[in-house]
Design a protein around this nucleic acid. Structure first.
Lengths: 237, 237
DNA sequence: GTTTTAAAAAATCTCGAGAATAAGTATTGA
DNA sequence: TCAATACTTATTCTCGAGATTTTTTAAAAC
């Protein structure tokens, strides 16, 4: 139970259907910014890019509405979800609230296996941090960072809380990535993660919560300095 | 801004497309229990019942995954989301947490217009309570109850919080309805709502939060007494 | 009598083409 | 020159049919 698919929600298994494949490819392209915020998603064009039929692509886009990465409007097709500083602030606040609560519960209920998973996730993340240069390495770091945060709250028994947190994490990741093209990371995230690990292992819920809150809010502040106008250029009327 | 579409999320406008129509009809049938928990949703059969093509119905079902009312599994089609006492308890806990926080913010930021909306919503709910006999009256009461709870937290500035709350409300409504067929409502909900209104109007966030928490938990307890086995009979393997 | 294997049936998934709607362009009139 | 109208283009939405996969049914072997 420890090593296999600790992530759970986001990547349950390998895609068994074309809809699933298109869904993941689209999600990736939106989060990584290849499809710009507010951009119109024309089915007739995209179906060629992703190599599927029109109906299949429509279904994949419908699935992306769950994640609030795509919005659909009556009879006017699909668009990439727009971005705004307000929205990101909202996401940050809500994340702080939900993740801190989940972390608290996780610390309270986590057993030895949880501690082991946490150590392992931190170790893998550390390894990825050391050689973080190329684009592939960045992808690997992103993945391991996500898993570390997931394992932190994995002992929280509330499926719904974890579900909502996963959605918000995805949203935050998009904002972070949209800004990364413009500005390298100034903070030393590793130190923050290590402090988080220590507090969690020591079962100090208050301290861990405080660190996590600060950690999430710092991500917001580092993006905040960037004018949103640069992010959603294609955001047509 | 006050009267028109205060609800917001769930019913933005009248359906402009067949997908939207099928989506709403399906959602209604699932929440009201006509489509039983765990029941298999065979596209080829359902497309006739709802009078749309296969692709259209598939798209509507994909949309319902956002609401966690439908689950899809690899290459094995769609099912109505299963129910369990654990799940309902989780929903209840999470609702208490999120709604209380949102109510607190709403009370802090609500202006005169909000107070007016709240009074109006309560009045309409009261009127519906008085003549709650037939099935149509019940539907009306359900709608106005939803709106009352929505208006309560409408002054909360967090869109995400309100989004998650709307999802959980829908889930809770399903559980409540599944149980209503078996057991009439013993509680005097009107008294609870009135106390909630008074506390909110008095800007007593602590008291209002406490009442709301109790209100939500009471709904859980009244359903709790019913064995879940009765609810998901069709929940095949 | 139970399990394994193989054929048949059903359902899902997928695609391409046709009707309804929106967006864009040119034309006409003040 | 600007606004309104009619026309053209483009896109969305929708349906029905065909290919894969799963499930069911039946027969055969242990």
């Amino acid at each position: 139970m420890a090593h296999k698919n600790t992530a759970g929600d986001s990547t349950p298994a390998e895609p068994k259907t074309l809809v699933e494949t298109a869904y993941r490819a689209l999600r990736r392209d939106i989060i990584e910014g290849r499809l710009a915020p507010g951009e119109k998603l024309r089915v007739e064009h995209l179906k060629d890019d992703y190599g599927v039929g029109a109906g299949t692509l429509r279904e994949a886009l419908s699935l992306l509405i769950s994640d609030a990465l795509v919005v659909s409007q009556g009879q006017r097709g699909f668009r990439v979800a727009p971005v705004s500083l307000e929205d990101f602030e909202d996401i940050t606040r809500t994340r702080v609230m939900l993740e801190c609560d989940a972390l608290r519960q996780s610390i309270a209920k986590g057993d030895d296996a949880w501690e082991g998973d946490l150590l392992a996730a931190f170790h893998r993340l550390t390894k990825a941090e050391e050689k973080r240069i190329g684009t592939d390495d960045r992808e690997e770091w992103e993945e391991r960072n996500r898993i570390f945060h997931e394992v932190l709250i994995s002992a929280c028994p509330s499926r719904w809380l974890k579900h909502f947190i996963a959605i918000l994490y995805q949203q935050a990741e998009r904002y972070r990535r949209l800004s990364l093209y413009l500005q390298p990371i100034p903070r030393d995230i590793h130190v923050e993660h290590e402090a988080l690990l220590q507090a969690a292992m020591a079962r100090d819920a208050d301290k861990a919560g405080a660190i996590l809150a600060e950690h999430i809010q710092l991500t917001f502040r580092s993006v905040q300095s960037i004018p949103m106008a640069q992010l959603n250029e294609k955001q047509a009327a």
